[in-house]
Amino acid sequence: MTQKIHPLLIAGTVLVFMFLVGPLIIVLGAALSDTTYLTFPPQGLSLRWFENIFQIDAFRRTIVTSLQIAFLSTMIALVIGIPAAYALNRHRIQLPGWLSTLFILPVLVPELVLGFSLLKNLAVQFNSPIYISLLFGHSLLVLPYVVRVISASLASFDFSIEEAAISLGSPPLKTFFTILLPNVRSGVIAAFILAFITSINDVSISIFLTGPGLSTLPIQLLAHMEQFFDPTVASVSVLLMILTVAVMAIVERTLGLTFLAK
């Protein structure tokens, strides 16, 4: 690019990125503090608050629940989302136009409303276990990501390969597993990872679908913050940030992070 950018704009951009990254560095610092209260810059360095996470029963339990819900809801979304994305790409003419809108509905409808409606009209109305509502709520939450990422991978898939396999006598299911799936593998990995992190971080759906006995990590964090102001929350936040870094590394390797800027 030959066009020059005004120095003031560059200075502004530097400030914006300091604004974006700074608060997260502060959280990291606060997590390492050796004090019993939250402070930055950290006073004394210690990992004791990281140990503390695993000494609190509620954190241990909610970490397990969050990982479980994230894994299961992502698997559900993949198992039903991949065929849906395939159908939208391959059989578009047979399907009504509103179908693709239906699959992005979970993004359009406020998450709070979805969470509350699942509580009121599923869990309470039919007296069904809250875990089911939480699981399906999360599956819905991540479905649009799966459909979108897989659709994007399918867009660059050459369907004539699949036709070749079928015309040579390969049964449909075998064709799917041996031809299609390996070709969109990076899309599947990226979809899995994005869906997983979205579920792990969710507050708005889970807030209505948790309670005594069943809670997720973000909800437990909110509850802990209302009572304590110690560095435990900061150290859990750091664990979540480490997870984020891992996620980004995987997305970068599969789809490239620029995919997210689309």
Binding site: P23, I200, P218, L221, S237, M241, T244
Partner: peptide, 21 residues
């Protein structure tokens, strides 16, 4: 882009908590 994606993928609780500090 990495510097912008990182906060985006970090949860809303963590990012709001930062401002609490």
């Amino acid at each position: 882009i990495i510097a912008a994606v990182f906060p985006l993928l970090t949860g809303v609780v963590v990012r709001s908590f930062a401002w609490l500090i």
